[in-house]
Nucleic acid binder design. Structure first.
Lengths: 179, 179
DNA sequence: AATAATTTGTTGCCTGTGCAACAATAACAA
DNA sequence: TTGTTATTGTTGCACAGGCAACAAATTATT
């Protein structure tokens, strides 16, 4: 147990070894997985920066894990010498928070689209921009993609087929091309 | 035009006067409003902290506006004297970014719920927690709520009625009570 | 008070997509 | 090879919820 729902956290962590996931319980008490954290991933960055807010979710290790914890207060105050390393650390930290926010933003953009087709198109366009090409390799499989877009995997497959038939995209497994 | 889509921004802004909104164009070229910014709101905080990333959206003033711009680099480096004010400014800035992220996170939680009823329940539970009571006043109207949850306003009204009939909630206009 | 404008509630219809169950293909191991 | 597992694709059915159109209630304006 790395972070427990309902508690405040004044530190954030970097997962050095192992893996973890964040979970919450929905209104009916069912446990649902929110995010997966792999080696090198950050844990609780948003929470640490938001003082007095209690964690809405629990972060659990899913394998033997080593986490490097950073006290938030020491990150922002820096050291007496105003050294470059502290400044760099701070910059990296802010960049991590911002990236988390931007990722969430992009996901919201997908989720807001009214149809499965538009969700897919929005997502594919994002990936295409990331890889600077209309031809690209999907970094995730259909299951994860369906979860990300919050649609049924079968509906995702079905719509991908239709989009191919309509000449919007070409694909084979994870190799995609936007027309 | 405060921020233009496709450009990088090394500053963020606080809207001192007037109002603004952020917009983007969807895959079919239709313009859609993403967020509204009111007096006192922040503009481009995520973007400024993520160097080299180009803005996915355009921010436009919707009335005569005054924006106080902060160069990102000066926020994080602080001044020579390592003064308390600079430190405070930094702390506030990080807190703004983090809050944006947490807000997005909460919205994603709502959007991920499979049914309108669960979306509503998740949202109402959030508001209830914010106001520390099972009786609370909804801060937004039905239109905005429907947009936020990404459902039809009519479907929202319909489901609210059903939930009342099922004894899950009580409400009159914007006064709500979770049972 | 009278009128207009805004917000909220209601309802019938119809389509998109969740669900379930299964088939096909690819990846991997023995 | 053969068997095993993981991934991807397909399809029929049912129904939740989008859409449209209207009614009721509340608030603002003259």
């Amino acid at each position: 147990m790395i972070i427990e729902a309902g508690t405040v956290a004044a530190e954030f962590g970097i997962l050095l070894e192992g893996s973890a996931h964040s979970i919450k319980w929905d209104a009916s008490g069912k446990q649902i997985i929110i995010t997966m954290v792999e080696k090198g991933g950050a844990i609780g960055v948003l929470l640490a920066a938001s003082p007095q807010r209690v964690s809405p979710l629990t972060v659990q290790a899913t394998a033997d894990a080593t986490v490097l914890m950073f006290p938030f207060s020491q990150i922002i105050t820096g050291c007496e010498k105003k050294c470059r390393h502290h400044e760099r650390l701070l910059q990296n930290y802010i960049s991590i928070i911002a990236d988390k926010g931007i990722e969430l933003h992009e996901r919201v953009n997908c989720l807001l689209e009214p149809t499965v087709r538009k969700k897919i198109l929005t997502y594919l366009t994002n990936i295409s921009h990331e890889q600077n090409s209309t031809e690209f390799i999907l970094p995730i499989n259909r299951n994860i993609m369906a979860e990300y877009l919050n649609v049924e995997r079968s509906a995702l497959s079905r719509e991908l087929s239709r989009m191919k038939a309509d000449g919007l995209i070409e694909y084979n497994r994870n190799n995609f091309k936007l027309m």
